[in-house]
Lab assay of single mutants.
Amino acid sequence: RNRTTFNSSQLQALERVFERTHYPDAFVREDLARRVNLTEARVQVWFQNRRAKFRR
C-alpha cells in the first residue's frame, strides 16, 4: 500500500476533530471519513499517529 497524502482540507477537518477529542469513537471516525473522502481505517491510523506526535 502506498503512503496516503492528505490535502489541506482533509488535514483541517482531522485536526478540528482532534482538538475536540484525541479518541474519536467509531461513529465519529466513520462520519469524518465520509466527509473527507477517506476510509475509516486511514482516519483511525491518522489519529494513532497524531496522538503519538502529540505525546512527543
Rank of each mutant, 00 (worst) to 15 (best):
R34I: 03
A26W: 11
Q10V: 06
V17H: 05
R42C: 15
K53V: 13
Y23P: 04
K53P: 04
R42K: 12
L38W: 11
W46N: 01
A26H: 15
F54M: 12
L38G: 05
T5N: 15
R3T: 15
A26T: 12
D31I: 01
V43L: 06
R51P: 02
S8N: 11
P24Q: 00
E15I: 00
N2R: 06
F47R: 03
P24N: 00
R55L: 09
T4N: 14
E15G: 02
A26V: 11
N2P: 08
A41Q: 12
V43W: 08
N2W: 06
Q12Y: 10
L38S: 11
T4G: 12
V43M: 02
T21G: 05
L32V: 09
N49S: 11
A33C: 14
A41M: 08
Q12W: 06
Q44E: 13
L32K: 00
V45A: 15
P24D: 00
D31R: 09
T4P: 09
F54Q: 12
E19G: 02
N49F: 04
Q44T: 08
R29D: 01
E15M: 02
F47W: 01
N49V: 08
V17S: 04
R50K: 07
T39G: 03
N37W: 08
R29P: 01
P24K: 04
P24V: 00
A52G: 03
V43P: 00
V28P: 01
T4D: 12
R50Q: 13
L14P: 02
T39M: 02
L38R: 03
V45E: 15
V17L: 14
F54H: 14
W46D: 01
A13E: 15
T39A: 05
R35H: 07
E30S: 11
P24C: 02
N49T: 11
F47E: 04
R50V: 02
F18Y: 07
E30H: 08
D31T: 10
T4V: 12
R34Q: 08
N2G: 06
T39W: 03
L32G: 00
V36S: 05
F18T: 03
R1W: 11
S8D: 14
Y23W: 11
E30V: 04
N7L: 06
Q48Y: 08
T5G: 12
L32Q: 01
R3Y: 14
Q48S: 07
N37V: 02
A26S: 13
V17Y: 01
L11F: 07
R29K: 01
P24R: 03
S8K: 11
P24S: 03
K53T: 15
L32W: 03
L14E: 03
T5L: 04
R1F: 08
S8P: 13
N2I: 05
R20V: 10
V45G: 13
R51M: 00
R1P: 09
Q10T: 07
K53Y: 06
V45Y: 14
V28K: 01
R42Q: 15
L32H: 00
